[in-house]
Design a protein around this nucleic acid. Structure first.
Length: 820
DNA sequence: GTAGGGTTAG
């Protein structure tokens, strides 16, 4: 005791606090010490960057001084440890208490389950002798189970406590009601619990009614009930409540928002006499959630004008609205305001608001700024990590994403799915599938988003085999009706050439979103089924699904590839006039493509001259490829020059321009362009390309035999020429080889390209086995003709992948109709 | 020492 008194006195001298000095009575010294520690710990919770290590020091100090903390000190320490993810220290803290009373136990049960370690919480609870248990500790344990999604355990505990004669109280019932939605057949259990509550006499307690309302609203979202009936039941409870508190109001408001009834939500909100932050937050987050971003900004402005102080939830929802609507400047203003006004934010606040800031910067394309926010955060949670990961993925900085992913201290299903999708989006299908398999060997099993990523990986490499397997596994895992996975299946089947399978996925989906419609329209378009694409688009409009930017890109391509010029133009005009979407350079590119393919160069030029934005690469590229199709030399050269400046490292413009020259028989110029491409070090130069003019097939090769791809092609070519001649195909065709090293040198040798040759090789596949050609080279007009010819000669269907597009050749005709 | 609503990552 003397030591303790000395301790307090020393601390007093050190800190200069009077209350620690000159006290004679031991109890005062103990109390003073307790106060000192409490003050120190509350200081820790304000010093964000070092809170945990300081807490640790204070804790160590207590141990050395022999001080036995009471529950309020314990709570502060627990709070610091659990919030800084230092559960082991919390555990140590608990173990240091010689005989923890029921209050200490309850504190720890609550803390452990709040930090997600239900097992530890349960261990403490189970080790608590029955004679010291009470209703409160049962309540804490039940809440823990409910928060960690173990509804059945909560019900077991509930039965248990009644068996041992612990009387459930209003806390018990509120927790039980929140556990209700986690168990099967919760509608009938709800009835049972409701009557039990009434019998128990807690039926008039506000918190219990709040929980009941919440349960009825949750039930209203179940697929097999009539939502309006349950919403009415919830509303009746609400209307008849003797005393409504903040939670009652927000529960009902959020309930209406959840059931897409924003008008009623807003009416309830307006009916509130005193609107506090929470109810404003409900409205703001509701509008943000439903995509009505301008409404949430409007709400926040009103709130600000009324002088209601924003809290963490307000900022988070508001920033999310800015991020989703790409209102970067507004978001930045909010950020500045936070920096200016928030002096002493709690840690929870820092997590969510900073995470929302990361997302704001990331979605507005400021990836490095997003990373800076992350780096500045004193402590981060899994959401912070995932936000930065998806920032890299969204910016297609896949190597940084990969590195970041490996550095993550923990990964959840979102981390995995983001990384898998990142690979798929980057075209690294093999890597995506590899990672998916890796995830399967972890404890964190794939969710439907991971499946969607893996399926998209299959699309990237056109692997129908893996795609089908994943489809089967998806159904097995119970994710068969997942929206995102089904959407990716539509695209996967279409890109792998089986349009009808893609269509049947679309037709059997329980619900569709705009992505589903876009994917199916694109599938039809890519297969050359322009009219089916257009019909589906019209159907989408009839279903009152608003088309978005992607829809327009898709439908414009479909029209372009099927020669539906007028219709395409009409759709383009409706984009802004009817739907208020400002066309981007991609959309103008599609419009120019639509016109040029149809040979309408005058109209295309008019469009370009009157463009409200800078004429970008997509527009010039569309113009150039149109010029190649129609042999428009003058315009083509102009477009190519622009492209060389805009995208100097791309090979496309060079190849298109040399083909354009070749089409007019200007072989010297054609070869010059190819040499130019090489001397500028443009990558992806193909080993071989070709063009046919007046029964003459001109083949360009990188060099004669040095390139492995070329020598392989030669073999096919010789065989192909021989067979084709034998079959009587274009007997007058002369074959001219343009060697890059010695231009104009003629070889009476070869015919079409590698793709054609490979296709021919595949024709050796036995009858009955479908022929599919997966090559990532663009198909050209003459190649197309040859495939048509071959399908007739061999009497079989040949499916050829052309980038994202598929051609089905059958009986001398192609599914794409008048594509070429 | 225990509760009910509202947040951020795909």
């Amino acid at each position: 005791m003397n030591a303790l008194r000395k301790q307090a006195s020393n601390l007093g001298k050190q800190t200069g606090l009077k209350e620690f000095t000159g006290k004679d009575r031991v109890t005062d010294a103990v109390r003073a010490l307790a106060n000192f520690y409490a003050a120190q710990l509350s200081l820790c919770s304000k010093q964000i960057p070092t809170s945990y290590s300081n807490a640790r020091m204070v804790h160590a100090h207590m141990i050395v001084s022999g001080f036995r903390p009471k529950s309020h000190i314990l709570n502060r320490l627990m709070d610091l440890y659990t919030k800084s993810s230092n559960l082991p220290y919390a555990r140590q803290l608990f173990d240091e208490i010689p005989e923890p009373d029921i209050c200490a136990r309850t504190t720890f049960i609550t803390a452990y389950s709040a930090s997600g370690d239900l097992k530890l919480a349960r261990e403490i609870f189970n080790n608590t002798p029955l004679n010291i248990r009470d209703t409160v500790s049962y309540n804490a344990m039940i809440t823990g189970c409910a928060h960690n999604s173990d509804g059945n355990a909560a019900f077991d505990l509930f039965r248990d406590m009644k068996r041992y004669n612990f009387k459930p109280d209003n806390f018990t019932y509120t927790s039980m009601l929140s556990a209700l939605s986690l168990i099967a057949d919760h509608e009938s259990h709800c009835q049972q619990l409701h009557s039990e509550i009434i019998k128990s006499g807690t039926g008039f307690v506000t918190s219990v009614i709040n929980a009941l309302i919440s349960v009825y609203i949750k039930c209203a979202s179940s697929p097999h009930v009539t939502p309006s009936l349950l919403m009415d039941a919830a509303r009746k409870l609400f209307d008849e409540m003797p005393h409504k508190d903040e939670v009652s109001w927000t529960t009902v408001i959020n309930g209406y928002i959840r059931n897409d009834d924003l008008d009623t939500a807003s009416q309830v909100f307006d009916g509130m006499n005193e609107k506090l932050v929470d109810s404003w937050n409900s409205m703001i987050s509701g509008y943000t959630h439903k995509g009505l971003y301008s409404k949430s900004l409007e709400m926040s402005k009103k709130m600000h004008l009324l002088g209601i102080k924003f809290d963490g939830f307000t900022y988070t929802s508001l920033l999310s609205a800015c991020a989703n609507s790409k209102l970067f400047l507004h978001g930045k203003q909010v950020h500045a305001y936070i920096i200016k006004t928030v002096i002493n934010p709690s840690r929870d606040f820092l997590f969510s608001v900073n995470n929302a800031l990361i997302t704001l910067y990331s979605k507005c394309g400021k990836t490095d700024d997003a990373r800076k926010i992350f780096d500045k955060m004193p402590i981060r949670d899994i959401v912070s990590w995932n936000s930065v990961l998806s920032a890299y993925v969204e910016a297609i900085r896949i190597e940084e994403a990969r590195l970041f992913f490996t550095k993550m201290p923990e990964k959840n299903e979102i981390s995995w799915s983001v990384m898998i999708s990142g690979f798929a989006q980057n075209g690294s299908g093999e890597e995506g599938l590899k990672l998916f398999n890796q995830q399967r060997s972890t404890e964190c099993q794939p969710c439907d988003y991971s499946y969607a990523g893996a399926i998209r990986s299959c699309s990237a490499i056109a692997s129908l085999n893996h795609g089908c397997q994943l489809h089967a596994q998806l159904i097995q895992s119970g994710f068969g009706s997942s929206l995102s996975a089904s959407n990716s299946l539509i695209t996967m089947y279409a890109r792998c050439g089986v349009l009808e399978d893609s269509h049947s996925v679309f037709l059997t989906m329980p619900c569709l979103d705009s992505v589903s419609w876009n994917a199916m329209i694109a599938a039809f378009g890519q297969h050359g089924h322009g009219s089916r694409a257009v019909n589906l688009y019209e159907e989408m409009l009839k279903e009152n699904i608003a088309p978005d930017r992607i829809t327009f890109l898709t439908i414009l391509s479909s029209c372009s590839h099927s020669g539906l010029v007028d219709q395409g133009q009409r759709y383009f005009n409706s984009m802004y006039d009817t739907y208020g979407i400002t066309p981007g350079e991609d959309h103008y590119g599609r419009l120019v493509d639509l016109l040029c393919r149809a040979g309408k160069f005058t109209e295309a030029k008019t469009v370009i001259e009157n463009l409200p934005i800078n004429v970008g690469a997509p527009v010039w590229e569309a113009l150039l490829s149109g010029c190649v199709i129609h042999g428009n030399m003058e315009l083509g050269i102009e477009a190519a020059e622009k492209l060389f400046n805009l995208i100097p490292s791309h090979d496309g413009p060079y190849i298109l321009l040399s083909n354009l020259y070749g089409k007019s028989g200007k072989w010297t110029e054609a070869a010059r362009v190819r040499n130019m491409m090489r001397s500028r070090g443009v990558k992806k130069e193909p080993a071989c390309s070709w063009i046919e003019v007046d029964n003459m097939v001109h083949v360009f090769l990188v060099d004669d035999t040095k390139h492995p791809e070329v020598s392989e092609v030669y073999g096919y070519l010789e065989e192909l020429v021989f067979k084709m001649r034998k079959l009587g195909y274009v007997p007058d065709t002369k074959f001219v080889l343009h060697d890059m090293e010695n231009e104009q040198k003629e070889h009476a040798l070869s015919t079409h390209s590698e793709k054609l040759a490979v296709a021919f090789g595949l024709l050796k596949i036995p009858a009955g086995v479908p022929i599919r050609v997966f090559k990532n080279l663009r198909i050209c007009g003459d190649c197309h003709n040859a495939f048509e010819f071959m399908s007739e000669v061999v009497g079989r269907e040949i499916v050829v992948r052309d980038g994202k597009r598929f051609h089905h050749f059958r009986n001398g005709k192609c599914s794409c109709g008048n594509y070429w």
